[in-house]
Design a binder for these strands. Structure first.
Lengths: 168, 168
DNA sequence: CCCTTTTCACCTAGGTGGTAAGAT
DNA sequence: ATCTTACCACCTAGGTGAAAAGGG
């Protein structure tokens, strides 16, 4: 996923141990289609696929560790392939999703561990909503990605880019 | 370090949490020199540098997790540079070292945590001994590395390799 | 017609020993 | 003379969108 979801975390107990997850969930109940300049709903969504949350590679870590830096989920991957490796989010193309961040405190006491809900908080960010595609539908998105992703440098400062800019 | 130190671990409590470390420590008290075909001691060692053990990236993990696979320390690095990043082993060139594996069980009970020695075991492997160098002294070592390290493929099946083989 | 898959050139990022120059 | 440093070509490994081919 690019650009990656990046969060800063505050308010943790510095010495407690936490696991941090990112989840990708349906943002609405429709299938979408890109028409001219905007996405429009074209019908009901496919049956939602259940994906386990992606655990951040730094997990588990202390509250102090999580709060010290920007937590980036750059390694999280999405796919439309049923045979994809574990750890990727299996999504429906042309469907709208958004991301959640889950922060779960690890209890050392076994009794406390049984009531897990009390120590887990979920944060949903509407601004992360996106439509999954197999090919870009909007040249402005393509340009945004090429401009900002280091791995797309080959497509910057090129004739293609100049033409796209001119066509804006 | 190549070839990497690789270990298999047995006898852990599958559900307990462990941290696994590799340490690099002096193997003797001498400075060495390569003469014709063998390393010989040439005098007393430099003052030993203290390096913290390298924690395996999978740490912490359950006993079941550690025992399921080969534990490889391929990412561990050695250096002779004082300004090197944290996490590298700072060694004296022309000195002999060997590696240790440290397995430490994490106690949830705070009282047990205070007497850490009881739950930490160290394993020293004489067969991992090596002399740190800034340039290879022995063509057989060079050949061994080129033959087995994927990143040295450029030097395989080449004129250089043929010449070295002939000179054996 | 619309969406998906495959292959590609072109990057980032970083691990090899060789080689020549530098340092003591 | 001996050891060290800096730079290099050449790899592994994998993340980009473009373009052409495939599928329903």
């Amino acid at each position: 996923m690019f650009p990656p979801v990046m969060v800063t975390i505050t308010g943790l107990d510095p010495s407690a141990i936490y696991r941090v997850y990112m989840d990708v969930v349906p943002a609405d109940g429709y299938r979408h289609k890109f028409t001219k300049t905007a996405w429009v709903a074209t019908g009901p969504a496919e049956f939602s696929i259940s994906n386990p949350p992606y655990e951040h590679p730094n997990s588990p870590a202390s509250g102090a560790g999580w709060m010290g830096t920007v937590v980036s989920f750059a390694k999280a991957k999405i796919t439309n392939n049923n045979d994809s490796v574990e750890g990727n989010f299996l999504l429906h193309s042309m469907h709208k999703y958004q991301t959640k961040i889950i922060i779960s405190r690890q209890e050392t006491d076994k009794k406390a561990r049984s009531c897990l809900g009390d120590h887990t908080h979920t944060f949903q960010f509407e601004e992360t909503a996106f439509v999954a595609v197999t090919a870009y539908q909007n040249h402005r998105v393509t340009r945004l990605k090429i401009k900002n992703n280091p791995f797309a440098k080959a497509f910057r400062d090129s004739d293609v880019m100049a033409i796209l800019e001119g066509a804006r």
